[in-house]
Design a protein around this nucleic acid. Structure first.
Lengths: 145, 145
DNA sequence: TTAAACCTTCATGTACGCTTCAAGGCAAGG
DNA sequence: CCTTGCCTTGAAGCGTACATGAAGGTTTAA
């Protein structure tokens, strides 16, 4: 399939696919006799993997390091594992930060007064109450906003 | 406290604090007679809030919209709630994407052979088995990388 | 009084991750 | 033959979120 079809299939722009190839996030793509890219399912799978990891916040650079290790045929198992673990730790921390922010916003949402007469001081008090409840006190609670 | 101390206290660079003020992510900061910023705990709390939301992937632009609504004294409750809900939805999706990627990497990690003799085909089979197990099959499984 | 160590504003630079543009080639249809 | 529509490469442009540098002011301490 040509690059446009691959783009439609994956939701990744043609330019981005070329960019991924240039950055070695996906393997070198086969060409037709006239030099056009001829994309198969293996490439599609790689593009999807890249998309998933990018969505999870993995940088192009880290993704390239990771993929290089896999593509090298030497026994890189240890390095691969430690790279995987590293990345997992980063992503888990990210997820937890995200969850904390979600909790924070949910709390705000659930304590909205219908006519919003709450003062900053009251909101701070509410925050404090919450902080105590979830045992996650900050040195300085936030400002009601 | 001066901007350097605030920077040390929050882990946010002085330049970034000035930038946040200029972008109205934090309120206008009081000045000393000579024009230096004099930062109090209220500002520190705002900076921390900004930091948390930034870490959760909220853009400067959305954060500014959100804070503007709060700082305006009109009754914006409805808009505030819907903005909050919008942002929550974005963050929850982000969290779920992240979790999916974590699951994916964890799976890879747990199926590593100690001497990595696995072929691509075997890896694909493993992926498939996993996909079946968690009932999250992709149209095209990824490529073992 | 002179240097260090802060601060200010304003302008420009930087990194990332693409997107868009320019210039051109190939193949099919009218 | 010419337009349409796909493709190619390389280079330049762009938005975000700051970082850095220039030019200058103030306070403290030797």
């Amino acid at each position: 399939m040509n690059i446009k079809e691959a783009s439609e299939k994956t939701g990744v722009s043609s330019a981005a696919i070329r960019y991924y190839e240039k950055e070695s996030l996906i393997p070198a793509i086969d060409r037709t006799p006239v030099g056009n890219r001829d994309i198969d399912d293996r490439i599609i799978r790689r593009i999807r993997f890249v998309t998933q990891m990018r969505a999870a916040g993995m940088s192009i650079e880290n993704l390239r390091r990771y993929i290089e290790l896999f593509d090298a045929q030497e026994d890189n198992t240890k390095e691969q594992k430690s790279l995987l673990k590293e990345q997992l730790a980063v992503m888990e921390e990210k997820r937890d930060d995200l969850q904390a922010a979600i909790d924070h916003l949910n709390y705000k949402l659930n304590h909205f007064y219908d006519h919003m007469e709450t003062t900053e001081a009251e909101l701070r008090a509410l925050e404090k109450e919450h902080a105590d409840k979830v045992d996650h006190q900050e040195e300085t609670p936030d400002d009601g906003v």
